[in-house]
Structures are given as structure tokens and as C-alpha cells.
Design a protein around this nucleic acid. Structure first.
Lengths: 199, 199, 199, 199
DNA sequence: CATGAATGAGCGTTCATTCAT
DNA sequence: AATGAATGAACGCTCATTCAT
């Protein structure tokens, strides 16, 4: 059972850095310090191994999404939390994040692929969370009036873009600075800039 | 010479939809209605063909970046223009955009790959443009005071995220709505919400 | 010891229906409701298991050949008995018969293979029996004069052909009819058609 | 096109002597003095190559069946001709005959396999031919009264058995002797032994 | 410019077999 | 007697690439 984990870990790392097609089962075996056929003892094939690796990665992500604040706190604090989460996850689960971000783009046009399914689910969850924040925030008067679905989409794109930037280390600036700038940027825009302070 | 174009076009479409490794030279030949060896007459190999296709795609993109407004107009109009451009390009050059977005993630960890080089150049150009806008905007008082490099990074991420969203058709809302919401969102945040007017 | 039988039984059935190479040790294990390594506890390997299965099948066949009538009765009744036996054995030992008929053809060109050895032995026994019948029958005047070795070969071929036909259910006619027609056919030819009586 | 034939020839010989599963594509390539991938250039795969080889072998057989005498000649001459044909074909097309006889038994239980289909067709043709001979022979009074379908089946089995015997060289007697003995055997049985002479 | 034919290298996978327990 | 885990060897097949024409 221990080797099974080693295989998934090796696969996650390799798929994430050189892609699904770019990784050979032999490389995975070497990386996991086992022989190739053992992969086929534990998994149905390369595809199955990929599915399991991706599912594990998404499950870790979904678990974190589930831990986002529900009640209490202001709506903006909730927005802050979701941005925070996406900065945090790159540090905590770098290989899982990389796996998701690297391998899926080439598989997104096949509607039956897990990538597509998991992406949809992730979007649905995030959408629901952010949409809820915006709706309540506007209702309470915490946020200014804005077109909620469209702004939700925009925030999704923003979060996604930030995640990629970090994963590929495209930004050479210090991370916390970007995170803070992002939060401030959103705060001003959502609240209309009235309240300068936030916990 | 005409066939050479057909090959690049076919390669762009196929690489963009099923990835570099997922596409075979035979598929490209079929799509271009030619035979495989002709690819090798016109290009050194699959990698070379990919390089040319990607360069062409990036050149179209860079040409558009070069046409962004320089003088005149307010800084925010310039920001609006760059956002606009990234919404527009998906409609105008869907396959080129898809090529860039689909194939590069799996190649970004190799520092000598063109993907990495072109990505860097694109970021550099965009960065410079946005950084300039922000710097001048803050100086003029058109924008509020903000941490310029960090905000630049954030805006880059936002633009990139929006582009991906459109390319993969992940958002089910009407596009113009998202674009307008994005522009408004930025306007409020950059100007502090004081000026209600935008072109 | 009971499991050993289960393994042989499973092997006989599978080898007989999809061939030696077409059957995997895992399939045998599953069919016998045991695990693969147990096969290697009871047998040296797949070949050894095949050898044992085939030997068992041939032993059952040889036992029956030994029970063919020796003395008494007419020579033609003895011929009838051997034809009868080959019709009967398909009903009594369908899987053993199938094993012999299905797996051996692909192994007959290797002179050291058991298939070849067992086939030879079977032919020798049958040959001896039939040759004896014909020789005595001709001597006694029960049969007409005929070339004994050649007719023996022909009868061997006939019996073999009938066996295959039944095993593969190639004939859609009722079996007893074919058997009776065969016996009558032989009777007429061997006796010259003079004596109309048969048991 | 010439290499394509070489591949089929090599495949026919190898499949026929060591079976379908017992033959590797590499062995076929070596035997045909080409490299493995060329097999896949000319055929879809090993199965496809087998199908083509088998079809070719059966076509040669069917062509010969089509050349059997139709009119003229006595019915018994026609029976003689079909027996003759099966003795002749082993000399003329040894590898094709061997292919059919060796590889099919392990595939006959799969109703969608070509082996089954071709076997059925062969039986149908032979059946029709022999059935016709018997029917007309009885009608004309050339043959004695006998149960036609059952005797047809028996003769099919006899012919099949003789073919196998020759292909596997199981009989150590001289071939012509066996053939003549067979023909005489049938003559006596079919005609009731009245007419001693045949052309 | 263009192609049919051919190949070297390597990949995903299977399978009989073994080992540690 | 029995098994879960593991492996060496090999197999069918694909693919980018080349050669002869």
C-alpha cells in the first residue's frame, strides 16, 4: 500500500512538470523506485493512474474549499479567505497544484475527460461561494451595487490567473506583496473604497 | 508556399486542441490534406513546426500589443484597451490563442523552450505597458496611490485568467457583461471610484 | 489435494476452449477460485500444468480404448465398438476431448512435445486395434479382401474427423443418425454388402 | 506490394506451424526479411494480418472447390474428384493448408471469428457438393439407397480427417495407397460393390 | 514539390513466475 | 497450504523521421 502512494506521488510530480504525454511509465517507475509492471498491479493503466492522481489533487483542493468560512465574519473577509487559500495552496501542495494546472489544458476539449469534470466541479463550488459573498455583501450594503454573475466570473478568472502565476513562478516580485495588492484592489472596488480598514 | 501555410494552420489547430504530444504528424498531414514527408520538406521536424506555429501566433499577438494606444487618451482608457484587446483576440484568432494557452503549460519548466521565452517576452511587454499606465496614472492623479509592481502583476494575472476563461468557454455568461464588469471593477479600484465616466 | 483437481479442471476447460497460449494463469486461477501462486505450489509451471491436464485426458481415453472388446464377437462388432466409443466420449468427457483436439494442432510440429507423443501413442493403439480387426476379419472371410494398412489409416482418419465434427458441433444433423450411417457405410464396404445383419 | 506478399507468406508459414499466439510479429518480420513496423504499414495489426492470410488460404481452397466437375462424368467420379482434391491440395499449398488446420481449432468457439465463418462456408460448399452427388447418384441408381444428409456428414468428416492426417504427416504409409484405399472403400459402400471398375 | 515505402527507437502493457510471509 | 506484492522478459504497436523516386 505504501508503494501505491509512491507511484501516485511520482506520477503527480512528473505529470505536473512535463505533462501526461511527456511522461513515460518507466520514468514514473524509476522516480518511485519500483519496476514498471508494479504500476499495472496497482492501477489499470497510465490513464487510470492519472485519474487517481488528479482526483487526489482535486480532493485536497476541495477539502480546503470546504473549510472556507461560512457564517460569521464580513463578506469581504470571506473573499479575502478565498484569495488567501489560493496563495496558500501553492506552498502547501505545490505538486498537486502543478499537476492540475499543467496537465488539464490539453485535455479540456474532451468533454468526457476527468479534467473537464473536475474543472467544472471546481468552478461550480468557487462560483457558488463567491456569488454568495457578493449577493449577501450587496444586500447588507457592505458592497456597492454590482452585476453579481459577471463579477463572480471575473473574480474566478483573477484567482485562476494568480494561481498560475505562482505555480509557474512567472512573477518575480515578492508574493505577499501581490497578495496584499490584490486584496486591497478588490476591497476598493467592492466596497467603493469607503472603509479603509479590515481585520 | 501555400501548402506551408496549410501545414502551419493544421498544426496550430491540432496542437491547440489536443496538445503537442497528443498530435501526430500524420494527423497534421491529413488535416492539411498533404502527406507526411512534405512536413519535413518545409520544416526540420515536429519541433520546428511547433516553433514556427507558436512564433506566428505570438507575432500576431505582439502586433496587436504594439497597436495599443500610446499617447493621448487617459491612462484608464489605456487599461481598458488592453483588457479589450484580450477579449477581442479570442474572437479574431481563436486557434492561435488556443495554441498558446493549451500547449505551453506542459513546456514551461524547460527554460530553453520557446514557450518559456515567448511567455517571458509577452509578460515583459504587457508588464511594461501596464506599469507605465499605472505609474503615469498615479503621477497625474488619475489613479489613487497604489503599489505599482504588485498591482501590475495582479492585473497581468487577471488578464491571463480572463483569456483562459474565454478560450475554454468556461464561463456561461455573456462575454460583454464580463468584460464590462471587469472594466468597471478596475475603474473603481484604480480611481478610487470618484470619476464615474468611462469611454 | 482437492484444489489441485480444481486447477486441472479449470485448466482443461480453458485450454480446451481458448487454447494454451490464449489462456493466462490468472484466468485459470480465477476459474478455479484460487490465487495464481497456488498453481506454482502444485505444478512446476504453466507447461507442467498443461502436461498434467493433457495426460489425464489421454489416460481417460486410453482406459476406454483398453475396454474395447477383445475376443468373442465378430470383427465388425469390434469396429462398431470403436466408432461407438468415439461418439460416446464426446458426451462423457466433453472438456477432456476438447482439450486434446483444440490445443494439440499448434504443438504437433515440435517432436518433443507431449502432444506429439500422446498422439503417436493414441494412433498406435487405435491402429493396432483396427489393424487386428481387419486382419482377422479378412482371414475369417468376414471381410472382403482389402489393403489392410491403408484401410486402417483411412478408418483412423474417419474416426478422427467424426470426433472433431462432434466436438465443434459442426454438424447440425442428429448424432445417432450420423453414427448409424457411418456404421452402415463401413459395414457395406468391409463385408462387400453381402450380410445384411448388424447388432 | 512485393513485401506485402512476403509478409503474408511468412505469417502463413509461422502461424501454420506454431500457431497464432505462438508467433510473434518480430518472428514474422525476420522471416520476411523486413522490419516489424512495416507489418503495421501494410496491415492494421497482427489480427488483420492473420485475417488476410487466412482469407487468402481459404480463397485458394474455394477456387479449387469451384473447379470440381459439374456435369458429365458419373456421380462417383465426382466423389473421387473431391477426395482427390483434398489429397492434392496438401502438396500444392502445404502452408496454406497447415495454416487453416493449425490455427483454427483454438478460435472456433468464438462465433465472430473468421475461422468460424470460413469453416462454415467451406462446410456449406462441400456439403452442397457431396449432397448433390449422393442425391443424384441414388436417383440414377448409380448408388444404393442411403440416408443422404447423414452420409454427407460422414464423408465430410472422412475428408477432413484425411486432410489432417496428411498435413501432420501422421500416416507413415504411402499416400497414394491411402487415397486409393479410401476411394475403393467409398465405391464399395456407395455402389453396393456391384461395379468393380472405375475410370 | 511531392510521395509511397520503410525504419529505429521507444512506449504501454501483459504475463509467467517468484518472494516474503 | 496459501497469498499479496513484486519483477524480468518480451510483445504488439506507434511515431517521428528518412530514403528512393
Amino acid at each position: 500500500m505504501e508503494k501505491r502512494q509512491a507511484i501516485i506521488q511520482a506520477a503527480t510530480a512528473l505529470f505536473g512538470s512535463i505533462g501526461f504525454d511527456g511522461t513515460t511509465t518507466l520514468e514514473i517507475a524509476n522516480e518511485a523506485s519500483i519496476t514498471e509492471p508494479l504500476i499495472y498491479y496497482h492501477f489499470k493503466g497510465k490513464d487510470d493512474l492519472f485519474t487517481h492522481s488528479l482526483e487526489l489533487a482535486f480532493n485536497e483542493y476541495f477539502t480546503r474549499l470546504d473549510q472556507l468560512p461560512n457564517r460569521s465574519s464580513t463578506e469581504f473577509q470571506k473573499i479575502t479567505a478565498v484569495i488567501d487559500l489560493h496563495f496558500q495552496i501553492v506552498d502547501d501542495l505545490p505538486e498537486q497544484t502543478r499537476l492540475i494546472i499543467t496537465t488539464c489544458p490539453a485535455k479540456l476539449y474532451d468533454p468526457n475527460n476527468i479534467c473537464r469534470k473536475k474543472y467544472s466541479e471546481a468552478r461550480k463550488r468557487l462560483s457558488k461561494y463567491i456569488n454568495g459573498c457578493l449577493t449577501r455583501g450587496v444586500k447588507k450594503g457592505e458592497f456597492i451595487k454590482l452585476s453579481i454573475p459577471e463579477t463572480t466570473h471575473m473574480l474566478l478568472a483573477l484567482i485562476n490567473g494568480l494561481l498560475r502565476q505562482r505555480v509557474f513562478q512567472l512573477a518575480d516580485t515578492d508574493t505577499d506583496g501581490v497578495k496584499d495588492a490584490t486584496i486591497e484592489f478588490c476591497r476598493r472596488s467592492l466596497t467603493g473604497g469607503q472603509f479603509g480598514i479590515q481585520a
